[in-house]
């Protein structure tokens, strides 16, 4: 496992942002005809995961999952084709953007809030059963941290010392309900002692801080010390879904957060301040990421939709 440099992480973040923006383009055209959950503004968390995970580690993500898939190494073309409902998609167009499955990479998602952790717990148990030394990352949000499975899974992982990393993307909003109104404690990481778990809260806009904390969480779990809870704070830049009027958040406050606390802008500034790269080089990097994604989108758009006659396939793998 090589650890990517800050510049490489910045490039990954640019690619993640442009991927999400490309997906947004399918919404007004109805190419993506369900709701689409964008993770714009949360790139530093997924980019911070890079370099800490092995191929046989599992990642189980949420309804807002694209960036975790990219971080796990899922083929971006197959992903975009799935999001655009194409037969060439990762799941042949049967899953859609909320349901991405890559068995080889042990990556899966769920559209049901809070349902990711039990699946991750199963991967963690398999790692111990097989003695593989793998870990399982279960992603949830601040909203998902309030459902019962959070407690059930962390309790079991703590009791059985399972290699489970619970990555909480605390973006402050569970659709329209703010974190402060829905959660009993000021942070989620402070729940860790209740489960005999490692716990840390980190600035999820700071890719270096996430990188370090995520590596620490994974190392804790991999060493057989039991579960880890990493709470990464961030801000949901978009509505809950594309098309959400988002009238429950104050417009000026949101505008200020977007302008002043964009993880891409923050990382770019760090690179400039440290003299790692100049304005022109970073601009070129951004342009290249956009161009690659545009090309990908163009290509995916030419792919066929699944044939209607196949709609009843796959209910049972045995065929009946």
């Amino acid at each position: 496992m090589s650890t990517p440099t800050l510049l490489e992480r910045y490039r990954a973040m640019l690619e993640m942002r442009s991927f999400e923006e490309a997906c947004q383009q399918g919404v007004p055209t109805r190419e993506v005809h369900g709701e689409l959950h964008s993770a714009i503004g949360q790139e530093a968390i997924a980019a911070g995961m890079l370099g800490s995970l092995r191929e046989d580690d599992a990642v189980v993500s949420t309804h807002r999952n694209h960036l975790h898939a990219l971080a796990k190494g899922v083929d971006p073309r197959a992903m975009m084709a799935e999001i655009f409902e194409k037969s060439t998609g990762l799941c042949g167009g049967f899953g859609g953007h909320m349901h991405l499955f890559d068995k080889r990479l042990r990556f899966s998602t769920t559209g049901i809030v809070g349902a990711s952790l039990p699946v991750a717990l199963g991967h963690a148990y398999a790692a111990v059963l097989g003695g593989t030394g793998a870990v399982a990352v279960g992603v949830t949000g601040d909203g998902g941290a309030n459902i019962g499975s959070f407690h059930e899974c962390l309790n079991i992982a703590g009791a059985w010392k399972l290699p489970l990393v619970v990555l909480i993307e605390n973006n402050e909003w569970a659709i329209s309900v703010p974190f402060s109104e829905s959660t009993a404690t000021p942070t989620l990481a402070e729940r860790a002692p209740a489960y005999g778990a490692w716990g840390k809260r980190v600035d999820g806009l700071d890719v270096e801080a996430v990188t370090e904390a995520f590596a620490e969480a994974v190392a804790h779990a991999r060493a057989g010390h039991g579960p880890a809870i990493l709470e990464a704070t961030c801000y949901r830049f978009r509505g809950h879904y594309e098309g959400d009027l988002d009238l429950y958040r104050k417009a000026d406050e949101k505008a200020q957060r977007l302008a002043e606390r964009d993880p891409l802008a923050l990382t770019r500034q760090t690179l400039l301040d440290r003299g790692v790269a100049g304005e022109a080089e970073l601009d070129a990097m951004a342009a290249a990421a956009s161009a690659r994604t545009a090309e990908l989108l163009e290509s995916v758009r030419r792919d066929p939709s699944p044939a209607p006659a196949t709609a009843h396939d796959h209910v049972f793998v045995s065929g009946r």
């Binding site: 039990p118 699946v119 717990l121 199963g122 398999a126």
Partner: peptide, 28 residues
């Protein structure tokens, strides 16, 4: 005790574990 596991009273967790185990090639 690993292959025949007594669980806490936590059906959401241990039923969901079957999904992860199945993806890993087990037959829970």
């Amino acid at each position: 005790a690993m292959r025949v596991r007594d669980t806490p009273i936590a059906e959401m967790a241990f039923t969901g574990m079957a999904v992860g185990l199945a993806i890993e090639g087990y037959r829970p």
